[in-house]
Every structure is written in C-alpha cells, then in structure tokens.
C-alpha cells in the first residue's frame, strides 16, 4: 500500500515536472483563458448579487471564488516555489505545511485588503497603470527581502553544527519568516474585488469573495507543502537517523533556490 502511494506521488511529480519543463505555451494559454473566464464569472455574479441578493447565489458565489482561488494559485508564482524549497531545506511535520500555507494565504489577502483601504482613502491619486507599476515595486521589494532571508539561511547553515541544525528544525521561527514573506505581495485579484466592492458599497460581498479566494489559495499551498515534505522524507536517510551528505547537499540546493527566486523576482522588475 505504502509502495503504491509512493509510486502515485512520483507519477504526479513527474507530470508536474514535465509540464513545468516543456515550453508549455498551449497549457498556459488554456490556463489563462480559464482564469479569465472565472474572473469574469465572479464579476458577473457579483453584479447580479448586488441587484438580487439570495442565499443560493451567495453560496455559488463563494464556491466560485474558492475555485478561482485554487486555479489562479496553480499558475506560475514565487509563493509555491519558496514553500517547496523551504520544506526541502528543513525537516517538518505535515501540520507545519498547513501553518505555512495559512500564513502565506492570510498575508497575501490581508495586504490586499490594507492596500484597497489605502487606495480608497489616502492614495486616491493612484489609478490605472500606476497600480500595475506599484505591484512591480512590491515584487521588487519582496524579491530583495527573500534574497536577504536566503543569504541569512545560507550563513546560518554554513556556521551551524549538526546539533544546532537539529534544534533549529523543531522551532517555528523560520516558518513564520518564510510564510509571511512569501505572501507579502498584495493579491491583485483580491485587490480588484475589494476596490470594486468598496466603490459600490458592497464591502461584505467583497470580503466573502476574498475569503473564498484565500481559502482556495490555502488548499493549494497546503498541497505544495505536503508534496515538498514527502520529497524531503524520500531524500533523507531514515535508517541512519543522521544528516547524510546527500541531505546536506539538498539543503544547500534549496537555500540557493530561495536566493535565486528572490534575485529573479527583483531582476525581472528592473530589466
């Protein structure tokens, strides 16, 4: 049974890797069309609800937002990559994947809510394409922060002895650090919904939709975290119960991955 589960996991991972490694323009095009369709559908349902509020439609609206949350989070993005790299770096229980996903999804949505509030009060002059530019600044700053955290991990790893490393694994500090940092960029989808709901006086409806989207995002991030933890378990030597050469290499590789993700995020904005 266990063997079967592991084989399924490997097949699933292989499919993901093949999809990621192919120049997947047609897959991406289908994904983009699906996001567009769902996004427009949320918009349409929201307008219908504004005119005629009923429970059935409201539940449907929540479900739609949840689905959108899962699908739009499944697209390319730095959050999943960082969570994946982090759980390869450190050994954690499955429950920590839930904590990490919760932190990332919550921060991603909360920052959008705060920004929507600011754009409707103090930053009224920021409109249209300037909001897109502002998103670029957020990505840049977030990339710098992730790079710094990655370098901090690297220095700590280079200086740490095995015993210290084991102690570090039992703490949650790094989970909070990475979880919050990975979600700092305000979710543009939630931002659009909140801006619309604030300007149309339907804030509770906007909040419900944003909650549904975060929940969808949370579910997907939990799955990414669990996958990564399972990969880590497969790579670590269970029998020897000590840090093997391979485990050390994987830890270094995952720290380098975190640094590269941060650098790429910042450099993409600059160039």
């Amino acid at each position: 049974m266990k063997k079967y589960k592991l084989s399924s996991l490997l097949v699933f991972l292989s499919i993901i890797a093949i999809l990621v490694c192919l120049n997947y323009s047609s897959i991406l095009s289908t994904f983009t069309n699906l996001i567009r369709y769902l996004s427009n559908f949320i918009n349409k349902t929201m307008r219908e609800l504004t005119a005629d509020l009923n429970l059935r439609k409201l539940v449907f609206f929540m479900g739609l937002s949840f689905l959108y949350g899962i699908i739009h989070s499944a697209g390319p993005g730095h959050g999943k990559a960082i969570i994946f790299a982090f759980f390869l770096k450190e050994r954690h229980h499955m429950a920590k994947a839930v904590l990490m996903a919760g932190l990332t999804a919550f921060t991603h949505t909360l920052s959008a809510l705060i920004l929507a509030l600011l754009l409707n009060t103090l930053l009224l002059g920021i409109k249209g394409f300037f909001r897109i530019k502002m998103q670029g600044y957020f990505i840049f700053a977030n990339g710098v922060l992730i790079t710094i955290i990655g370098i901090f991990f690297l220095i700590k790893r280079l200086l740490a002895k095995n015993k210290e490393l084991e102690e570090e694994r039992s703490t949650n500090h790094n989970i909070y650090l990475i979880g919050i940092t990975a979600g700092l960029i305000p979710c543009p989808a939630s931002l659009m919904i909140m801006l619309f709901s604030v300007s149309n006086g339907i804030i509770p409806l906007g909040l419900l939709s944003v909650f549904g989207i975060s929940l969808g995002m949370f579910v997907l991030l939990v799955a990414v975290g669990i996958l990564s933890i399972k990969c880590k378990k497969n790579l670590s030597s269970v029998k020897e119960n000590k840090t093997t050469v391979m485990t050390r290499w994987i830890e270094f590789l995952s720290i380098i991955l975190i640094i590269c993700i941060g650098l790429l995020m910042s450099l993409t904005v600059v160039f």
């Binding site: 991972l13 292989s14 993901i16 890797a17 990621v20 490694c21 994904f31 983009t32 996001i35 739009h72 697209g75 390319p76 993005g77 730095h78 999943k80 990559a81 390869l88 990505i139 990969c231 994987i250 590789l253 991955l257 590269c260 993700i261 790429l264 995020m265 993409t268």
Partner: peptide
C-alpha cells in the same frame, strides 16, 4: 525531478495575469 524544476526556475517565479 528537482534538477528539472531548478532548470526552469524562471518560469516558476513568473506571476500570473
């Protein structure tokens, strides 16, 4: 699988529209 994913790191960090 990890090496394959690392090669395609840039794709992984791109945002969605």
């Amino acid at each position: 699988l990890l090496i394959l994913c690392s090669f395609n790191l840039k794709n992984t960090t791109e945002a969605h529209p």
